[in-house]
Design a protein around this nucleic acid. Structure first.
Lengths: 251, 251
DNA sequence: CCTAGCAACTTGTCTATACATGTTCGTCAT
DNA sequence: ATGACGAACATGTATAGACAAGTTGCTAGG
């Protein structure tokens, strides 16, 4: 594989916010930006430690720490004697990459439709503030949407949204696009966290999903970040008889 | 919170296999052993960097690296000016990538034990051959293991194993190491596939897991490859009340 | 009694240096 | 031609020393 073009290595720090942060952290940020922006392609070799040392005038141990941590985080692959390379994208999250129920249903060749059950603007309660990791007097939106696949309920989507990051959430037409699509457009998600459980539905959920109280459901709680800020926390409830999570990792 | 007793700090390396490995790695292993074995309790303060330096005669940067990495891995919490403390155990482990139930249970600070219910060698049936993607006359092993966390059933593990790739599967002592560990040692998994569902258990499973017939269970079907060959197909069944799947992506 | 300030300790970062180990490639002797 | 050797360069680890910054507790001065 070819090396990255090495011409402007000294300008590595250019596009960065100059918040006071350690050199190694700036380096990590700059390098991961090169990678996520596509300037440094997968499997390309990146500048060696000593090249960075010469270009930026920092200590090799500092560069080493940045590269070592990025390697631990899966951005880079290092080979002694050879160099440091941009890693293949991790695939283990494939299970989670599809977040848009409308797309999923469409991909199965079925008809998708949704009903907006609740949409309100509010100050976060203590519990919501905990979940969302914001101050209690923070503005939030709260929505409940019922999704259908071929007119059969397939998902209850309860969602709390950070109003700072998505100020027009309540003005969206959720029959045109899903909440997921709007949120991705205003605050592209960079990180996320899931919790998957098997639970029994409560009576209201039974009615909404048109299932028996004895039918197990798959509950997915998901929080997504854009940078350091939580964008939204969602609770997705699927009837066990109509829904499976599928995932693939490796390669 | 109280400090850990500091008397035999110099013997930190005692229980370790003396495989040739870096000092910082030995330190990490020794410390995580103290934690998982319960000798160092949650929220206790552990020896400071300089104490370890004095006790073991290594450099502070080496100790710092070990503690920093263990912090990044969630074992420790550090506060500038205060010290380093054993972190709260993760409320819900079960990452998607690593799937060794014994390790998960140990990471929660609990006792793991397993019972081998079935272990047989056979030719694959048509259905198994389909699942495993091998010829019908292919040799397989079939095992059923019941896993306990603190003597409470936490997982039924049904497994079909490709006998070509894991010829000594039936000679393993599954009380010493899990099937996962043996399989990883003979045919390191490079790829995998999951299917997650919420289902109701059948009567036999109810009895084995000691749960009601109405309790929803999380069923995970997983197939793993080493290169182009399927190594094993497993069906893991967890009581919904005792188990969550946790996942993280991005960054 | 109370408080300001300092000493002592903690972790956090950065540097300069050293040596070990793995890879590649050119050179030199056979 | 071919193989052995070594120079050059890559990452991996370990060390000693320095300073920054957060916390605690003691102490001297009001």
């Amino acid at each position: 594989m070819s090396d990255v073009t090495n011409q402007h290595l000294a300008s590595l720090f250019d596009d960065l916010p100059d918040a006071p942060q350690p050199i190694y952290a700036k380096l990590k940020q700059a390098i991961s930006l090169k990678i996520t922006s596509g300037q440094w392609q997968v499997n390309q070799r990146i500048p060696s430690e000593s090249e960075v040392v010469k270009a930026l005038g920092v200590s090799r141990m500092t560069v080493n720490r940045a590269l070592r941590e990025l390697t631990a985080e899966g951005f880079l692959v290092r080979h002694q004697g050879l160099g440091t390379f941009v890693a293949e994208k991790k695939a283990h999250s494939a299970l989670f990459e599809v977040h848009n129920i409308a797309e999923e249903v469409a991909a199965r060749g079925h008809k998708h439709r949704s009903e907006l059950l609740v949409l309100e603007s509010a100050k976060a309660t203590v519990e919501e503030a905990m979940t969302l990791g914001v101050r209690t007097n923070h503005g939030i939106f709260r929505s409940v949407v019922l999704h259908f696949e071929n007119d059969l309920p397939i998902q209850i989507e309860e969602r709390i949204v950070n109003a700072n990051l998505a100020p027009d959430y309540d003005k969206q037409d959720f029959s045109l696009h899903t909440s997921y699509e709007y949120l991705m457009s205003v605050a592209p998600m960079t990180e996320g966290e899931h919790l998957v459980e098997a639970i029994l539905p409560n009576p209201i959920e039974c009615e909404r999903l048109r299932i028996q109280a004895s039918e197990p459901c798959l509950q997915i709680k998901r929080r997504t970040w854009a940078g350091d800020d939580i964008v939204t926390a969602a609770r997705l409830l699927h009837p066990g008889s109509r829904f499976q999570l599928f995932g693939h990792f490796g390669r």
